[in-house]
Nucleic acid binder design. Sequence first.
DNA 1: CAAATATACTTAACACTGTTAATAAATCAA
DNA 2: TTGATTTATTAACAGTGTTAAGTATATTTG
Lengths: 212, 212
Amino acid sequence: MAISDRKLREKEDLKKRILEAAKVLFLEKGFEATSMRNIAERVEFSPTTLYLYYKDKNDIVYALHQEGFKLLAQQFRIISNVEHPYERLKTMGRIYLQFAEENPDFYELMFVRQGPILHVQKHNRDDWEEGSRTYNVLYETVIECQNEGYFKDLLPHNVSLIVWSTLHGMCTLHMHMRLDCVKFEDDYEVDPEKSRPEYIYETFMAFLERLK
Amino acid sequence: MAISDRKLREKEDLKKRILEAAKVLFLEKGFEATSMRNIAERVEFSPTTLYLYYKDKNDIVYALHQEGFKLLAQQFRIISNVEHPYERLKTMGRIYLQFAEENPDFYELMFVRQGPILHVQKHNRDDWEEGSRTYNVLYETVIECQNEGYFKDLLPHNVSLIVWSTLHGMCTLHMHMRLDCVKFEDDYEVDPEKSRPEYIYETFMAFLERLK
DNA sequence: CAAATATACTTAACACTGTTAATAAATCAA
DNA sequence: TTGATTTATTAACAGTGTTAAGTATATTTG
């Protein structure tokens, strides 16, 4: 059965090549701008061939969305080195911001676009595996923070969701250019190395600091 | 010149009717799903006629985006009744959340979609009038809060942006169905009247409360 | 070995999309 | 009434996601 094995391997290979081509094009021109025909051209197959490997365009988008979560999970792996839970929480936030800054297209796919979510809903399971696993990293950290006396008398889910919301809000307002109208340069010296969200994040962390 | 006046009035009228038709369709099926031909059919004109009144589709989207801001500004008018600045800040947040909940399509247009922003950029002025005016309502309130002793030693812009980011993050994570995987019903009794963001908002306000 | 079947892929087509160029009809000014 | 201007239309372009039908090639079966 070595032959059919090779066949299967080649099939899997093409599936990956399609995804890779899609990724390159998505990152290059955004998804709105990349069509099935574009992807097909890049892998040098006819457009309809893609449908033999992916159900539809959303199926490709969803595969990319999953890659994004793997990437983020990889970045998060660093935090296990941070002993103190509160410091760990702060580090997580910084990593999250950095990820959004460096991979805006992935971020959009993972947390904004409805395409991937529609795919999840269509394929019956209502739990969004990648999402909830990532969320749990935050949730566990918050609980550990509470064990150390932080965020007293607050529900851990609420605290987690506030932290996530703030980070997500900062990232998306920035990405979607809704902060451009707020010129707060006159407030203080601007360090060109730091992004707008990073500035706000510092203040946010100062906020949390006072709660101890 | 009464005749040419009437002509001008009729022209303006059709322009408004197009916008109205677009609004109805957008709210009914979302923008992705409504085409120029759909709008044209509804006003009973040929598709190309729309281009005599609006430069392109983004032009229509932008007009709607502006309507959204008028609507929000209208809701915000209530807050002038609230004496105490911190109470006013809290009220603003609640109004913002409510607006997003009741007008998700407008919200998307105003704070997420890039269509309207592209329109602003194309037409040269880099200041986003509606946006910065709305932001300033928040900013002024934060400054007044600081005059009363709140948010000590923090830059008013940073505080404003954190509040906005948190609200925006809550709204969009909810709207884009990214909170569905977080089942936190077991934490406490769920009041079906209150939305997820409202719950989190209460905790967020409790956060701020502790800073005084 | 030859016929039947299954696999992998392509061509052609459908029903859309936003948008533009060319054209016709209506209204206005001379 | 003629000519110019405004207003609306038809036809078309280049593109989209997606499906049905057809075509080679390779594999299995009689």
